[in-house]
Design a protein around this nucleic acid. Structure first.
Lengths: 147, 147
DNA sequence: TATTGTTATACTCTATAACTATA
DNA sequence: TATAGTTATAGAGTATAACAATA
């Protein structure tokens, strides 16, 4: 056995972020899998459902922190499953707006609930206030970072 | 453009953890790369250096949250570079203890400093107190999770 | 029987470069 | 010239299963 308090990694923010993220992602992945979604697909579908006019793939990539080429494949998969569709942008003939279909919204709602329930279970070591604090700190890191 | 405040993902802990972790890992990866290390290799080397008697691969896997089979490859790479060595355990002939070599410690120190500097730059949106709070919250999530 | 380390495999994630069509 | 989307590729991360040696 190993005493965690002796280890520099135990106080390393990068390591802790990676570990915590991995643990939570694993739970989310398991919960979403029962609804036929991977985490990445879920996040794309969630964004497409949030923005009723549709969102360009470029904006999807920016919000998700992904390369646009990765978004293409994710949207391909969701479109093949009938959960989103690509519509031509009325203002830019290069762009294609990704919109959640009715079927996509029907899948999204219970999937979101299932994932949230699982993640909440895992975060129950933190009080509601502490979870709020964590969310706020993480959001500031994310929004302050360029690119 | 997209207004972040309208999006459910912007308040999703799992998403924020994944984004923040990715952003920090990218910086750490860039800084460590200049010292010939990837993030995973760095964390193994750091643990091996912290525990002077050596640490079994099984314990490495447990602390790092990795599968033991992944640790084999990481230790292979570090051993090939002369940064760690595998010693037979005096008490268990199945186990092999991973120990940092003198050369490994010489690589580790500046690498750790470079990575820390880069990550600190990225986290400068948070005060020292806030960083402490974040670290504490993350540590509780990690240590409270089974497996 | 269970555990330590190992090999193997497959899938996902991440990073990059290059191309097309439009702006 | 620059941008939106696309295709292609390669390396790294992650998840499993199975096996030999040892406990």
């Amino acid at each position: 056995m190993v005493d965690h308090n002796e280890l520099s990694l135990t106080r390393d923010v990068g390591f802790l972020l990676s570990r915590a993220s991995g643990l939570v992602a694993r739970q989310a992945h398991a919960a979403l899998g029962e609804h036929g979604l991977r985490v990445r697909q879920y996040s794309v579908l969630s964004l497409a459902a949030d923005i009723s006019d549709g969102i360009s793939q470029r904006d999807l990539a920016a919000v998700l922190g992904l390369d646009p080429s990765q978004v293409v494949l994710l949207v391909d998969e969701l479109a093949a499953a009938g959960l989103v569709e690509r519509r031509p942008s009325p203002t830019d003939r290069r762009a294609r707006l990704v919109v959640a279909t009715e079927s996509g919204r029907k899948v999204l709602r219970p999937a979101a609930k299932a994932a949230d329930r699982r993640v909440q279970e895992q975060l129950r070591v933190l009080s509601d206030d502490e979870q709020e604090t964590l969310t706020g700190l993480l959001a500031r890191i994310v929004t302050s970072s360029p690119e």
